[in-house]
Simulated scan of single mutants.
Amino acid sequence: MVYGAQVARVNLKDKTERDEVESFLGEFGLILDRDVDYTFVIRNEEPSPQFSLTERAPIVATCSKAKNVLKCFAIAHDLRGEGMAATLVTALIDRLFSEGIHHYFVYTNPCQVKIFSALGFKFVHQNQAVALLENGIYDIRQHLEGLKAKYEIGAGERAALVMNCNPFTLGHQFLIEEAANNHGEVLVFIVEEDKSLFPFATRLALVSEGTKHLPNVKIIPSGEYIISAATFPAYFIREEGERLQAYAELDAAIFGKYFCSSFQILKRYVGEEPYCPVTKAYNETLKKVLPIYGVELEEIRRRPFGDEPISASRVRSLLREGETANLINLLPEVTLRFLDTSLGREIVEKIRKTHSPH
């Protein structure tokens, strides 16, 4: 039987078309991730008595993307090895180029690494559950060399922190100061993805301004390789606990394998997490994975105010409830000043209207 390999775009806003893709993925135990913004399918255009001329031909292969992450691949078992993966990936790459995206990733099952390697993707890392590969105009090593040059990161041992700072609090400032007191140089990577109520540019500016008194601290955008949980795939790891573990292991290993070796980072600092089970589990994974790469994790007890640690979630809760009197005890001057700007007031209004997990 000969199958036509005509690639067709799916209208994700059309429930019938979306349901059809979800049903096809379901045959392989997969799901269509919620963040998908573009989907292609290949249909079996060979005439069959099983469907009439007025019916849509059945899907035999599909793939999707979410921004610059390729995901949700499935090909009918009897058509694997027929070049359909290459056809779908080529179509997606053409789409990415049309959107001005020239660097992209694929998360896949480790058993699929060879398929994507043959299509030009470069291997980044994998664990038992997931593999990450990349393709495009640069790779992770080139990216890190670029950071070295831009931020003048020379020889010598140093420490690092990875922070979201949504918003920047006295707790964050305290943690950075602790690291700065113990090391000749400290790199603070600010999570770049804009999934937080406080935009990345704002968070980066607040931390930069709020650490000016620390000459041995450099504030650096995280880039795409300090992985965001928001882009991590659900489509082939359905169980939330397994997904969190796979994500944490991959993120920790990439940080240790690439960032720490490139920048001679010997210690990573995190704040102790007494409340959030997700962050607590993530910290535990860091403790296990980082030593494999010769890196120690230093967990610092958070700066308290009253009976509770200072945290960004506590600040957002107070903003949401309009209880601003105690903010002076939770936020540095730079963040307090920002909240009094037009953009700051706009964000506070948004916080009061919504409940955010970030």
Score class of each variant (00 low, 15 high):
Y107K: 10
R345N: 02
A325M: 09
S311R: 02
C276W: 02
D307C: 06
L204K: 12
E22M: 11
G223P: 00
E185N: 04
R158Q: 08
R301E: 07
T231N: 13
V21H: 09
F28P: 08
I153G: 08
G29A: 14
D194E: 08
H358P: 00
Q173A: 13
F28A: 14
A234L: 07
A76N: 01
K13F: 12
G322E: 01
F263T: 01
N109L: 10
H77D: 11
A131I: 02
H77N: 13
Y104W: 10
H183S: 08
I93N: 15
L204T: 02
T108Q: 09
D14S: 13
N329Y: 13
I153V: 12
Q245G: 01
N329L: 09
E349Q: 14
E224W: 08
S317L: 14
I227K: 06
I226L: 15
N216F: 03
E82G: 13
C111T: 14
G146H: 09
A230G: 09
Y247H: 05
A149I: 06
K257M: 13
F73M: 13
K122A: 14
P58L: 11
E346K: 14
F168T: 02
F200G: 07
K288N: 04
G241T: 10
G4M: 08
V348H: 07
C72R: 15
F97T: 09
R243L: 03
E134V: 08
N164A: 11
Q50E: 12
A234K: 14
D33V: 05
V191W: 04
V36Y: 11
L88R: 15
L132D: 07
Y104Q: 09
N11D: 14
A312C: 10
D33E: 05
Q112H: 15
G306A: 06
V2I: 12
K280V: 01
I300D: 03
T202S: 11
S317K: 13
M1I: 03
E349A: 14
F232T: 00
T90M: 12
K13T: 06
R56G: 03
L339W: 03
Q142K: 15
L286I: 00
S342L: 10
N216P: 02
L339R: 09
V124I: 15
V130W: 01
E239I: 04
G29P: 04
V270A: 08
R18V: 01
